[in-house]
Computed example of a mutant assay.
Amino acid sequence: MNTEQRVLRLSIGVTFILAAAGIVFGLLSGSFAIVFDGIYALTDATMTIVALLVSNLITSSTASGAVGGRLVKHFTMGFWHLEPMVLGLNGVLLTGAAIYALINAVGSIMAGGRLLAFDYAIIYAGLTMLIAFAMAIYGSRANRELNSSFVGLDAKAWAMSGGLSGALLGAFVFGYAIQGTKLAWMLPYVDPVALALVCLVVIPMPIGTIKQALADILLVTPSDLKRHVDGVAEEIVRRYGFASYRSYVARVGRGRQIELYFIVPRNGPARRLEEWDHIRDEIGDAIGDDTPDRWLTIAFTTDPEWAD
């Protein structure tokens, strides 16, 4: 079976191979667009390594055993907070690289462009497009079971890479075809124009990931989870005759942090601790998603100040 770590390791290996090939073919063909593609892939691979390390930490800390016990001892709040940081940093770096490449492409166009060897460029773009789409399909299928933000972002990055390589392939084929024709004056501009167009497509793509990562870092309350938790809490208040409740909900990467405080009437019926635990179990079952990534705290008090 595929695991998050296995999918990310394969992606890292393939990305490093393509990044090295991109830099080599880019230098051989004289194409800055291909060099950028290689550097972009190298940046993505480096961040995927960081994502893999964070994934290993989260998995190890939520697992039973000696390793998980040692991690929990020193990091009692877990490692979920690292996930949105890595995702956000990844998106910012990729967007920054694309902006830098766009500036260079515009400068090259203003300077008269550059000639390149289209045969090398076509070979690289064609192979990269096929490999990238194959990895995107593999990652998407694996993520149907894994439901991982890291794998999802990685699959999206491969799909983006395949589309961009396809665009470069079209531009290089066009440049190869117009050699020796009346349109040959356009040859120096094929590479920088293709690079500029690719960058314009790439720049906005990670924005959604950056926004979600920022929301997780700032502990913005997810409305759907809040509605679900409030619905469960209201039913418990009605069923057991509690005065009211307070709910606090946040999403931090794959982690779900939920705190529920129920205000119990001061002169309410006495209950044994086992009964309170039974109510907690009932609430936990109603909320669902009982996995190591759910952090659920349920408390009962007669003093509203303890809940506010």
Rank of each mutant, 00 (worst) to 15 (best):
R144E: 15
A159T: 12
W80P: 08
D303G: 06
F172N: 02
A33F: 07
G253P: 09
F16N: 02
S60K: 11
V92T: 11
A286H: 06
V201N: 03
F36V: 09
Y189I: 07
V190Y: 01
L197A: 12
N56V: 11
T15L: 11
D37M: 04
R114K: 10
D289W: 11
Y176T: 04
I99D: 00
G284H: 06
V237Q: 00
A177P: 11
R144I: 09
V173H: 00
P292W: 07
I49H: 00
P304Q: 05
S244H: 13
T128P: 03
A98V: 10
V237N: 00
T48I: 07
D281K: 10
G208W: 11
A215D: 15
F118C: 02
N147G: 08
L195F: 05
R256W: 08
V24S: 01
G91F: 05
G91H: 03
S64G: 15
D303H: 06
L87D: 05
V173T: 08
Y189A: 02
W276S: 01
P222K: 00
A51P: 07
W185R: 01
A63Q: 12
S31R: 00
Y261N: 10
I178K: 00
G166A: 12
T209E: 07
V50G: 00
G96H: 05
L71V: 10
D281G: 14
C199M: 12
